[in-house]
Design a protein around this nucleic acid. Structure first.
Length: 593
RNA sequence: GCACCCGUAGCUCAGCUGGAUAGAGCGCUGCCCUCCGAAGGCAGAGGUCAGGGGUUCGAAUCCCUUCGGGUGCGCCA
């Protein structure tokens, strides 16, 4: 249950009443106002700006926003869960709830457990089913840390959307069709020769030098012996390419699995031209050409940079300018093959054809220049029915004690994701990747994330969960026969939770469903990480008060009823922490070791 | 030259799609804690929200512009 959403409905109903009286215009957009926690908690439990938002429309019947606010507040005050509703400032309405309502929220959060906060988005609006495409790293080597950020982000976003009540598919686009996979095949072939005892020396410029191809070469040697050695490249290329891509994808899947990431669909770019459907890209282009969106034409050379071999020629162009792009985009290379963009159009059309209406692509920030054309393409192939949101993930700067980490040469010129995961663990990697907005660069300090201190947000949040669990154990030690099942806790005398700190925690817990909805709607999983940090902080802070004021401690051996009520709060709190952490893919430990 | 992203406390960053007196951690200053609910606690100082204009009841948030940083700019993916 989401009290913010509930009161959004209440206020909308009151406004509708005023509309029916003819004192507000009939076409009033009732989604414009918000019900939110007030900045200052002394103002009350909820606040709405409704009267100010509709000030203009209300001018005819109401002298000022405050006048409209007064009328809304009057109606709100009649709701039985409302203790008080008063107008403040320029026209805010501050609502103070009866404690029974917050107690009800607490009770529900205990009884619903994992379902508290779930499914809110589905009730608010129909998002349709969502396709999240993330990682999509080229199958030419192990994943590096930058890939990891996109991977964790996409995975958490998918989990968040799913929790919020939308259908979600997690998808990986395998770029297995371009020139670089041929380079991969040639690189693997070098390792194949090496595995058969040849001295290959330095890997030639332009090929992939990394050691990670050695196993692939050895596998080829084991499978084909010396058979391929004397064949021309045209004979072995496809064979080697296919097996090597498979090996690379296995490696990538392992890297992802180490982060607990699993995709539903791996979509092969190659399948768009060589699959059962034949040349899908050609078909899509033909279709768009018939609609006048693809044409033959010339492009001006780009300004501000010199392209030496610029050749002014007529080419096949996608009319992306019609959908907001800066320039029309080529679909065919001069050698007659499709551009990457052409394939990507067909791929995104496939998503649309499979029924997705919200497409989310997670890319590295260096692909920012590609966003407009892809959105144009989605608009074109879906006839405007599907929306593409592209989430760009910025760089990750690896640090150790404040110093930049030197790049390892062992497996190329980057630090692999696997190295980092092995060093600091999944939880630290996932949480830190999400404890920042996706489009802000991220400083990741390998030393700090494993520290057990307040400075380390991963530890701080996990510790809150562990501390809560520890309270439960302590309570059972003090009252061995205590029934702490959710049913029993929900029946505790929750009105005993009268301390300011306890009330603050309850109000924060009541915000969880709203945080989920807002984060899901904005496609911003980092909000959950920050919310959890805030919740943990409030808990630790209240806990610390128990040092000077023993009467605030959760377990009170003299007062069984009070202890039970406080355990109810703890149970709700750890439930929300665990729920949020699960969305982020971070474990919620029962104790810190 | 053009497009996109970023610019908030000394540092690293939030700021709930336009709301009330702009927040957190680190660092800094002061006090408390060595009778373990202290893998610390409390309090305080610190801001031209890069600069300037605009939109309106109200702007860190939206628009324009300047400056500064990043990314990209047929036939790479």
């Amino acid at each position: 249950m989401n009290i913010f959403a509930d009161f959004q409905t209440h206020v909308a109903a009151i406004l509708t009443g005023i509309v029916q009286d003819g004192r507000l215009p009939a076409d009033l957009d009732l989604t414009r106002f918000v019900v939110e926690p007030p900045r200052d908690t002394t103002h009350g439990d909820l606040a709405t700006n409704a009267a100010m938002v509709y000030a203009k429309e209300a001018k005819a019947s109401f002298g000022s926003p405050r006048e409209l606010a007064t009328e809304i507040a009057f109606s709100l005050a009649k709701i039985e869960t409302v203790d008080q509703a008063e107008v403040a400032g320029p026209g805010f309405i501050n609502i103070r709830l009866k404690t029974v309502l917050l107690e009800k929220v607490l009770r529900q959060s205990i009884l619903k457990r994992d379902d508290f906060g779930r499914g809110g988005l589905a009730r608010v609006q129909d998002i349709g089913s969502v396709n999240v495409e993330y990682v999509s790293a080229n199958p030419t080597g192990p994943m590096h840390v930058g890939h990891g950020r996109g991977a964790v982000f996409g995975d958490a976003l998918a989990a968040l959307l799913s929790f919020a009540g939308t259908e979600v598919a997690r998808e990986y686009y395998i770029n297995d069709a371009g020139a670089q996979v041929d380079v991969l095949a040639r690189s693997a072939f070098m390792r194949y020769r090496e595995a058969l005892g040849e001295t290959i020396g330095e890997i030639p410029e332009g090929l992939y030098p990394g050691d990670y191809l050695k196993p692939a070469g050895a596998a080829l040697a084991a499978k084909y012996g010396r058979k391929l050695l004397d064949q021309p490249e045209s004979e072995w290329l496809e064979l080697v390419r296919t097996t090597t891509i498979d090996a690379m994808m296995d490696m990538i899947r392992e890297d992802l699995a180490a982060l607990n990431i699993k995709h539903d669909v791996f979509f092969s770019e190659r399948s768009l031209t060589r699959g059962a459907q034949g040349d899908v890209i050609g078909a899509v282009i033909a279709d768009l050409r018939a609609r006048g969106i693809v044409y033959e034409g010339r492009l001006p050379p780009p300004k501000g940079q010199v392209i030496e071999d610029w050749e002014d020629r007529e080419q096949t162009l996608f009319r992306s300018t019609e959908f907001g792009d800066d320039i029309d985009r080529p679909l065919m290379k001069s050698d007659g093959s499709y551009t990457y963009f052409a394939a990507d159009i067909a791929y995104h059309k496939s998503k649309v054809d499979r029924g997705f209406t919200t497409l989310i692509d997670v890319w590295g920030a260096d692909h920012g220049g590609y966003v407009k054309r892809m959105q144009a393409a989605v608009a074109a192939v879906s006839q405007g029915k599907a929306k593409l949101d592209v989430k760009l993930c910025q760089l990750v700067k690896l640090m150790r004690m404040g110093e930049p980490v030197k790049m390892s040469k062992r497996s190329g010129d980057f630090v692999t994701l696997r190295e980092v995961v092995d060093e600091v663990g999944v939880d630290a990697v996932r949480f830190m990747m999400l404890f920042r907005k996706n489009d802000a660069t991220l400083e990741f300090d390998l030393a700090k994330v494993i520290e057990q201190s307040r400075e380390n947000p991963v530890f701080y949040v996990q510790y809150a969960h562990a501390r809560g669990s520890s309270v439960m154990r302590q309570a059972l030690a003090a009252f061995p026969d205590l029934d702490i099942t959710p049913q029993a806790l929900a029946e505790a005398k929750l009105d005993l939770l009268s301390d300011e700190g306890e009330q603050g925690l309850i109000k924060l817990i009541a915000q969880y469903p709203r945080q989920i909805d807002a984060a899901a709607l904005a496609h911003e999983p980092h909000r959950i990480a920050f919310y959890l940090h805030e919740l943990a902080s409030a808990f630790h802070s209240h806990w610390n008060k128990g040092k000077d004021q023993p009467q605030l401690r959760f377990v009170n051996e003299e007062r069984r009823e009070l202890t039970l009520a406080r355990l109810a709060l703890i149970s709700s709190l750890t439930g929300v922490l665990a729920s949020g952490l699960r969305i982020l893919g971070v474990s919620a430990p029962l104790e810190m070791r």
